[in-house]
Amino acid sequence: MASKGDLTKARLAESMLELIQTSGYSGTGLNAVIEHAEAPRGSIYFHFPEGKEGLGVAAVELAAQRFEALIVEAAADAGGPAEAVRHAIEALTTIVAESDFRLGCPVSVVTLEMGAESERLRQACATAFESWISPTAAFLEASGVAPDEAHSLATVVVSTIEGAVIVSRALRSTQPLESAADVVAELIDQRCQTPGGTR
């Protein structure tokens, strides 16, 4: 069973994650996190001695874990990689639409805002993206795509989804995500139908 301290730490990371999604990293202050998490005032520096940067890393790691779980779940439930990617994009589309286009990917938000300012945050974001690329590549490889091609294709898939989320929020429309699902699924089908995963 988690201790009271562990629960407070998790609540702080969860609050940071939610606030990054709605207000951005720069727009999220520590006082707002404390209030959102309903945590004791001194708890942030107790659990995150590095302050906001350490809390930001924890939020990015939490986001990474959740989307990785979504990818793994989609892969387990789908009949093939193209269908799995469709399922994952549909889940993201629902999240974005139901939030009235206020929620996006916190990892891309932190990358854009802090990638050039904090090496620690940049590395956390890089690790997060790779944690999504790797299981996607493994699924593609298991479907017959050559290893190098699988990682390259998985990188394109994740990058396309990230871009589609941003454009969907800007346009306040799910069309970019829906189009991304169609194009990515078609690309995956082409690669999987080609011997060795190459043209």
Rank of each mutant, 00 (worst) to 15 (best):
87 H>M: 11
151 H>Y: 09
114 M>A: 08
60 V>I: 15
49 P>R: 02
94 T>F: 09
116 A>G: 09
137 A>W: 01
102 R>Q: 15
106 P>T: 07
6 D>E: 15
156 V>M: 09
9 K>N: 02
158 V>Y: 05
124 A>T: 04
2 A>M: 14
14 E>L: 08
189 D>H: 06
107 V>R: 01
97 A>V: 15
155 T>D: 07
111 T>V: 05
51 G>A: 05
159 S>Y: 04
97 A>P: 04
55 L>I: 02
34 I>Q: 05
175 Q>V: 13
87 H>E: 11
30 L>C: 03
29 G>L: 01
108 S>L: 12
138 A>C: 01
144 G>R: 08
191 R>V: 10
66 R>E: 14
72 V>L: 11
20 I>Q: 03
183 V>S: 10
149 E>A: 15
37 A>R: 14
68 E>K: 11
141 E>C: 08
90 E>I: 07
7 L>I: 13
110 V>D: 00
52 K>S: 05
111 T>A: 13
186 E>D: 14
142 A>F: 07
108 S>C: 08
4 K>C: 06
127 T>H: 10
177 L>K: 05
11 R>S: 13
160 T>M: 11
147 P>L: 09
24 G>C: 06
198 T>W: 13
58 A>Q: 04
148 D>F: 12
44 I>L: 10
38 E>Y: 10
18 E>N: 08
108 S>T: 14
50 E>N: 10
53 E>L: 04
51 G>P: 00
190 Q>I: 15
104 G>L: 11
183 V>F: 13
67 F>L: 12
20 I>L: 00
167 V>E: 12
187 L>K: 06
24 G>A: 02
116 A>S: 12
155 T>E: 06
136 T>V: 03
175 Q>M: 13
74 A>E: 01
77 D>E: 13
43 S>N: 06
103 L>G: 01
93 T>K: 08
11 R>E: 12
90 E>W: 03
22 T>E: 11
71 I>E: 05
168 S>Q: 07
182 D>V: 12
12 L>Q: 02
62 L>P: 12
134 S>A: 14
189 D>T: 12
20 I>K: 02
104 G>Y: 09
3 S>D: 03
57 V>K: 13
30 L>E: 09
174 T>M: 09
75 A>D: 07
53 E>H: 05
40 P>A: 14
28 T>A: 07
30 L>Q: 08
141 E>G: 09
163 G>R: 02
166 I>A: 13
133 I>T: 06
47 H>S: 07
46 F>T: 11
112 L>E: 13
125 C>I: 02
34 I>K: 11
174 T>E: 15
50 E>Y: 05
151 H>I: 09
93 T>E: 15
131 S>R: 05
136 T>K: 01
16 M>Y: 03
142 A>K: 14
72 V>P: 00
189 D>G: 07
14 E>N: 05
38 E>F: 13
187 L>N: 11
173 S>V: 04
86 R>S: 13
66 R>Q: 15
164 A>I: 00
107 V>T: 09
28 T>L: 07
19 L>C: 00
132 W>N: 07
165 V>R: 05
133 I>W: 01
172 R>C: 00
85 V>P: 04
105 C>W: 01
30 L>Y: 04
70 L>H: 01
19 L>R: 08
184 V>R: 04
191 R>C: 12
154 A>P: 03
122 R>K: 10
161 I>A: 11
197 G>Y: 10
